[in-house]
Design a protein around this nucleic acid. Sequence first.
DNA 1: CCGGATCCTTTGGGATACTG
DNA 2: CAGTATCCCAAAGGATCCGG
Lengths: 125, 125
Amino acid sequence: MAEPLNPDMFADCGPATPVRVGDKWTAKIIRCLEQGPRRFTELQAPLRGITPKVLTESLRAMERDGLLTRTAYDEIPPRVEYALTPLGRSLLVPMAAGCEWSRRHLGELIDARESWHAAHAVPAP
Amino acid sequence: MAEPLNPDMFADCGPATPVRVGDKWTAKIIRCLEQGPRRFTELQAPLRGITPKVLTESLRAMERDGLLTRTAYDEIPPRVEYALTPLGRSLLVPMAAGCEWSRRHLGELIDARESWHAAHAVPAP
DNA sequence: CCGGATCCTTTGGGATACTG
DNA sequence: CAGTATCCCAAAGGATCCGG
């Protein structure tokens, strides 16, 4: 999947940090693993709409970056568990800061959008 | 430019927040405006490689979302200044959390990548 | 000086079907 | 169950040229 770009929130203080965390799924996956290890299908369920291909790609990239571990048990039927590493868990801290911002300012944002649309509405002829 | 997707850092705690901040340029633009208003070309210079089209699109989206203001002075030659709003400035807080994470853990991340590549190196034939 | 207009490339992500 | 393998698309972003 190459090195996906990253929100500068994680990259602006030095060389680019090619962590895959500003993409569509990584933060959600971290949240799903917050309470403990989960299996492939246990991740797929809450991440409504993610396809197995995309989930696999995301998990592989996160494993490569040391954010989580993949443990395959040699059983039938096969069982694989994904778990956060301390590094992956540490991401919850900046993620919380983002959530806090969202909680506090989402209203202002919506208002700004609304008044912008009002000001740029096409006048009826 | 429609409503671009957003890192879940800003969206996971409720309805999706379509703020344009996890994209390639928004956070960088906020940093450029941190010390005060800047003109179009003053933004273009530090954001090496950004094309006028993309810069314009980003600025327009941020203006629409209330993150910055655009002030055109009726002079010759024309002069336009962009400045952060309080809402835009408030984003510096979660951005700092991301930077802090980066400073603290970038080393671990690079190590993880390196050992992953070592473990997955193709053995010479 | 500030950007609008066009055209083009890249790529993250989705749909679907199939397998050890 | 836990993925692979293909094919496909939308959309962000870049290149270049042009206009007020």
